[in-house]
Design a protein around this nucleic acid. Structure first.
Lengths: 321, 321
DNA sequence: GATACATGTGTAATCGATTAACTACTGCTC
DNA sequence: GAGCAGTAGTTAATCGATTACACATGTATC
């Protein structure tokens, strides 16, 4: 910057003013400065700028698992929205581990992100409190924590789940296997509660950890117990469960009805196509980013609650008639 | 930091030494400083530190599309490897657009990432040159550019592709539809060249853009032209092509043989399971991160060329016998 | 011609760390 | 006890930007 100033025959203050579009400099001076910048190929040091302004134009996003397409889609949407507002996104992978999540959150705070989007690994509120206490805006995404005091963006699957339950019961299923998420996550608990509640005693629940491997194990257990329908509470566990179903040579939907929470582009390609509860991932990501930007901007955004929809495709058999 | 120093009755220099594990401070002083840090809940400002040390402990990763599970896996692996070396990763989504890629690269450079991993959108070397000229270490990942002078990490699919070609030809296919990647990417060109070359005139090529939509369009065109086998050159185009095949009610493998470059966890679940050429994504990501770290460290890593493998699953029909 | 006011630019403090150069103290040797 | 070495800690410069304040110049007003 000093070089540029010298080259243009002005002070660094003036260069800075040109760079930041302040009203002051003469068109003529401005021209000279811009020429010098061009000539020297100067690019401002974002670190120095941030140190001075205490704004990094960066959002932190800590998600549970980038390999989960659900989160990848969200990350993508967050990134898109953030970029359109001139913000960058630093993504942290918590790997469904609370410690790793905490580590990442602290690293991001150390780097002075302007705000944080968090998909909490557990519903323990202490980490969120810590961040809020530090004065950094936080928005929770997909999952919430106990007694959260920050904005939350999530999808509500209650309606879709009760509709699903109604159909399963209506079709005469009496042993319905539910492959649930971890009970210490809000989504894990809530989805299961709603579904099990509306199945009125016909449900058998096995908890997984939102990962493929746990899905196949849970499915194995439930099938052994004679389940005639399986509902997986996220796409990765669904993937695992499907593998187990295939491995046993069971025919969907005749021998086993099947549904998954989360849609994926390949579910329609299976034979039969898989019935799902689709979450509006892109809207979730965008909404979360917008809420966070609002918070950074000093406004108080409302919680956002989008609706997940039941998409019938055939894997429930007569329950879809 | 000043507060901590005051609290512990020492100077900021001493605090800094304690923080950075320098030899100087007495165990006793160290103890006092640590106590003060603890008590005040002090966390060092990474920006200030980076400004002073010119090292951010951050890698930039610019990929073509986070929604493509292939890149998501790579991103995940990069992130893992980087973290284990104390580095963070900032991910940029280029969306297969050269401009957006350039924008992102510049943003990352402005933020003074210590190094850059790039999956170039086109094989134009100018952006890479620009970065190298700026003295920032770069490693290319998955794709290369013309006359690249930086380390490249990629998967070699030649063997797998010729094996695939041999089988298709051997099974008597004479109109083999190839859904190719964009000709201005190295992977798009090379894969196609190898496959078409070893199909000896039996290939019909339609170029897509590594995305689902282009895959279905290309498939439609090729099927209209009477193709009896389809090979998609990446998983998203494969997804699109599969959709088109299903939409037409064509049976795999009897009516149409099908294979895809890139494996995905759900390919084995289709009926029949899809034959693929699997790339070692995790190893690619890790290797790329390692190469970049080596480069940052002043060493000169070799190019890495991993091998993609043909995985036969049944979607080629008699070509697999 | 003096006063006031607007305008454009420069000077220097500042953000929060690191670190070279210096000072102060301790203890050892002869 | 002078001289020296070694250790512990301090002072102050520095990284590269932003910005409050000061200053100089030009214009309008009386």
């Amino acid at each position: 910057m000093k070089d540029v100033a010298q080259h243009a025959g002005v002070s660094t203050a003036t260069v800075s003013r040109v760079l930041n579009g302040h009203a002051a400099p003469t068109p003529e001076t401005r021209e000279r400065v811009l020429a010098a910048i061009e000539e020297l190929g100067y690019r401002p040091n974002a670190l120095a700028r941030s140190l001075r302004t205490t704004s990094t134009q960066t959002l932190g996003l800590v998600i549970s698992d980038l390999l989960n397409p659900f989160f990848a889609e969200i990350a993508r949407a967050v990134e898109d929205e953030a970029r359109s507002h001139g913000y960058c996104v630093v993504i942290g992978n918590a790997d469904e581990s609370a410690e790793q999540e905490a580590t990442y959150v602290r690293t991001l705070l150390d780097r002075r992100v302007d705000g944080l989007l968090l998909c909490p690994a557990t519903d323990d509120p202490s980490l969120v409190r810590e961040v809020s206490a530090g004065g950094v805006p936080v928005v929770l995404l997909d999952r919430t924590v106990r007694g959260a005091t920050c904005p939350v963006v999530r999808a509500d699957g209650s309606e879709a789940l009760t509709a699903l339950a109604r159909r399963l019961v209506g079709a005469g299923h009496t042993r319905i296997g539910v492959i649930a998420g971890p009970p210490n996550t809000s989504t894990g608990r809530e989805r299961t509660d709603v579904l099990v509640g509306s199945l009125g005693g016909l449900a058998q629940v096995v908890h997984g950890d939102f990962r493929q491997e746990s899905g196949s194990q849970a499915a194995a257990r439930l099938l052994d117990d004679g389940a005639t329908a399986l509902v997986a509470m996220d796409n990765l566990m669904g993937l695992g469960a499907l593998g187990e179903v295939r491995a046993r040579g069971l025919q969907i939907p005749h021998e086993i009805a099947f549904a998954v929470f989360d849609d994926q582009p390949w579910f329609p390609l299976l034979d039969p196509p898989i019935t799902v509860i689709a979450q509006p991932t892109v809207e979730m990501g965008r909404a979360a980013a917008r809420s966070l930007l609002a918070l950074i901007d000093g406004r108080q955004p409302d919680d956002v609650r989008l609706t997940a929809k039941l998409v019938l495709r055939g894997s429930l058999g007569e329950a879809e008639l």
